[in-house]
Computed example of a mutant assay.
Amino acid sequence: MKLTLIAVASTVVALSFSALAEDMPGMKMDGMESKQMTEETKQAPVANADGTIKAIDTVKHTVTISHGAVPAVRWPPMTMVFSVTQDKLTGLTAGDRVSFSFLIEGGRATIVSIQK
């Protein structure tokens, strides 16, 4: 009996939230300013780090780097894979110590610049 009451109560609560959400389109938005996207807010921030190249995959266009903490994006030290264009890898091999800049877009970290 308790399970039936809990199920009914849960359904009523869920439907109440649904009905409340349907009223939202009728909300008055007078006096509320919309945030305009500027060039500054469209671009992902570039972060800088130092690390050691662990592997280079020229087929997948990735480089695996063991890097220190990156405060700009609140990352602890770790080893991870970055997307990279082939031209940026010229002259680099596994084991090289590098300084690099990257940006994060759509959950993917892409190398912007990298040097020994």
Rank of each mutant, 00 (worst) to 15 (best):
Q115I: 01
D87G: 08
A49L: 04
G106N: 15
A49P: 02
V12P: 03
T93H: 07
E39H: 06
A109V: 00
I104R: 05
P76W: 03
S18N: 10
T64Q: 10
S34F: 02
M27K: 09
Q115N: 12
G91N: 03
E22A: 12
M27H: 07
K116I: 00
D96L: 08
A7D: 10
S83H: 13
G68N: 14
N48K: 15
P77G: 07
S99H: 13
H61F: 08
S66L: 09
T110D: 09
P77K: 14
L20K: 10
T85M: 12
F17C: 12
A44S: 14
E105W: 04
M27R: 11
L15E: 06
K35I: 13
W75E: 11
V73K: 08
T110W: 02
T85V: 10
G106W: 06
A47M: 11
V13Y: 09
A14G: 11
T38S: 14
L92G: 08
I6Q: 11
T41Q: 09
A55W: 02
Q115M: 07
E105I: 07
G95L: 07
I65R: 03
K42D: 04
E33M: 11
Q115S: 14
A7V: 09
A21W: 11
L92Q: 06
A94T: 08
S66G: 07
H67G: 08
G91M: 01
